[in-house]
Design a protein around this nucleic acid. Structure first.
Length: 561
RNA sequence: GCCCGCAUAGCUCAGUGGAUAGAGCGUCUGCCUCCGGAGCAGAAGGUCGUAGGUUCGACUCCUACUGCGGGCACCA
């Protein structure tokens, strides 16, 4: 029995108590979702519910008295082995081994679908992240979003949402010109302007461009600058795309700011805002009255000199996303952009949308890196850039992704490179992957011994007797596996994939503890028993949950390490 | 000045109103004739920044304060 099924049965019991007159309550007062949690203390049973405390006030009673009424009804539920009242009114439920163990077969049968749900079915979600200028390599802040943004997209997809990962290419404006001028300067053997780009990658780009087209040096000055800018742009964008591909982060849409302007999307965006009545003229400029919707000042769209602001692009871009059919636009921004939250929400409102429904802005705090006990300073314009590739070269894609994902993004993150470089269980990704590889090894050995087929898809469920899984640590492991779908669902709802990583670490611990206490395969001249088979089912279920969870994080689940 | 985030063990950090606040690292102590020791078991280590409030119940929600990080543009 899954906790979801148990919750539904508890709800039935409460409704039955109301119908029978023992609880003086309207059926509408019963929460739609009964909370069923795993108690921290195993002595408190397999599952626990606080429903008695939730409804006691409305029933004009106290929680323990309500619990007393419910206990006999809960005892009637098939698969429930015991019900206790504890503390202020918790109801602790113990399941029979058979009922709890059935879950292993359910997991093995569901395979990659275990943990998926439909709470976001039918939603079209656009999630925009990284959106770096194509003027340099991706740095650590981008890398955090590459890992977390992709993981959020994957988590949303587990709940049935149709998700588009989108990268907004800031390929318009003075930064591009500075970039082109910097590359050109290096190609001509000149010093890069003070406010230009200084990394050694600028020299590399210059060399590549000249090597591919030596005639570029003979162009007239104006044309040459443009040629360098465009050539460097193409190379740098391709470099970012290649790096993200290797990082297992694949975008569905690469949206160029230039194309936004070329496609008249800006005009369409302005038309929408004008219809809604929030644009106005002042001092020769065109403004959006974002203060109507909580911004602290109104924002300029068109400057007095006729130039569009960057904010105009942002505004048009939002309207364009909505016109492309997305009912929710998620933005992942760095902490240095947090001032944008109010104005982006105001844009949504000015366009006639509901900011609480159609837009969501998540802010990721800074990533710091320590090396040799000192902070490594990050600077995009200075040479000393810590890039995505640097991190991956040092620790690999899996460890890089995992160590960035396992923390919530709203607190600053300090990565200790010296620790991450060590391939030890200082980095929990190895701990989780090790559990997966260990299970794979056990099942491989079982197949080699002829006990069972190597592929759990071919196992016969009739051989599996869940009632044999009576060991305390088998029960704890089953409980952790049963809780996985709820963890995924809340991770999706809260846009917090780190919850999955943390749960996988618990599952890995649960498996290692089980493995330590419960011998799976026969030893010496013993032969396989029904218990051997049942434990192999539990192993396969644990392996499936770890594999599914790692997949949501975009991290590999190795058969061997 | 205003806005956003954070403050939990020596360190790095989990903890979506619930029971005795957890993990890893570090320190100390145990467990390999046998399925992967990248493992397991145990010890020590906490006024959850401070003060109020809401609640049957607060690390969690609200208010103020203190400290730390980041941000304020007709820049991009």
């Amino acid at each position: 029995m899954t906790p979801q099924e148990l919750a539904a049965q508890i709800r039935e019991a409460v409704l039955a108590a109301i119908a029978g007159g023992s609880l003086l309550l309207e059926s509408g007062d019963v929460p739609a979702q009964i909370v069923v949690d795993r108690p921290k203390n195993p002595e408190h049973g397999d599952w626990s519910t606080n429903v008695a405390m939730q409804i006691s006030a409305k029933a004009n009673s106290n929680p323990r008295a309500v619990a007393q009424i419910l206990v006999p009804l809960l005892n009637e539920i098939k698969g429930v082995a015991g019900v206790d009242i504890a503390g202020p009114g918790f109801i602790n439920i113990k399941l029979s081994a058979a009922s709890q163990g059935e879950l292993a077969a359910a997991v093995v049968a569901a395979r990659v679908d275990f943990g998926r749900g439909d709470s976001l079915a039918g939603r079209a979600i656009n999630i925009e992240f990284i959106s770096a200028n194509p003027t340099g390599p991706l740095h650590l802040g981008h890398t955090r979003w590459a890992a977390v943004g992709d993981a959020i997209a994957r988590v949303l997809e587990t709940q049935g949402a149709k998700v588009a990962r989108e990268f907004y290419i800031n390929d318009r404006g003075v930064q591009m010109d500075k970039f082109g001028a910097s590359v050109q300067a290096r190609a001509l053997g000149q010093a890069v302007p003070e406010d230009g780009y200084h990394g050694s990658y600028i020299d590399d780009l210059a060399k590549q461009i000249v090597a591919a087209d030596p005639a570029i040096l003979d162009l007239a000055a104006d044309a040459r600058l443009v040629a360098f800018r465009e050539a460097a742009y193409k190379l740098q964008l391709a470099q970012q795309q290649g790096v993200l591909d290797g990082f297992n982060t694949h975008f569905d849409v690469w949206y160029s700011e230039r194309s936004l302007h070329e496609s008249a999307a800006v005009d369409r965006g302005f038309a929408t805002l004008r219809e809604q009545g929030h644009m106005f003229e002042l001092d020769g400029a065109t403004w959006l009255r974002t203060t109507d919707f909580g911004d602290d000042k109104d924002r300029v769209l068109v400057k007095a000199d006729g130039e569009l602001t960057y904010f105009a692009s942002d505004t048009a871009y939002y309207v364009d996303k909505r016109n492309r059919g997305f009912d929710l636009c998620i933005y992942l921004l760095g902490a240095d952009h947090h001032g944008y939250v109010h104005r982006l929400r105001a844009v949504s409102a000015c366009a006639g949308d509901n900011p609480d429904v159609n837009i969501e802005v998540l802010i990721g705090q800074m990533v710091k890196m320590m090396k040799g006990g000192e902070e490594v300073r990050l600077s995009k314009r200075a040479g000393n850039i810590i890039t995505l590739e640097d991190l991956v070269d040092e620790v690999g894609v899996d460890a890089a992704r995992y160590s960035l994902i396992r923390y919530p993004v709203d607190s600053p993150l300090t990565l200790d490179l010296d620790l991450l470089i060590q391939r030890t269980n200082d980095n929990p990704v190895y701990y989780v992957q090790y559990a997966h590889a260990r299970i794979a090894s056990v099942i491989r050995n079982a197949a080699d011994l002829g006990i069972i087929d190597a592929d759990s898809a071919n196992w016969n469920q009739a051989d599996f007797d869940p009632s044999l899984l009576v060991h305390e640590r088998e029960g704890q492991l089953l409980g952790l596996l049963a809780d996985y779908p709820r963890v995924v669902s809340s991770a999706a709802q809260l846009r917090e994939p780190h919850r999955i990583a943390r749960h996988l670490e618990e599952v890995a611990t649960g498996y290692h503890r089980f493995y330590d206490a419960c011998r799976v395969l026969p030893q010496g001249d013993e032969s396989a028993t029904a218990l051997t088979i049942s434990r192999l089912w539990l192993c396969a279920a644990a392996r499936q949950v770890i594999a599914n969870g790692l997949d949501v994080l975009g991290v590999s689940a190795p058969e061997r390490m």
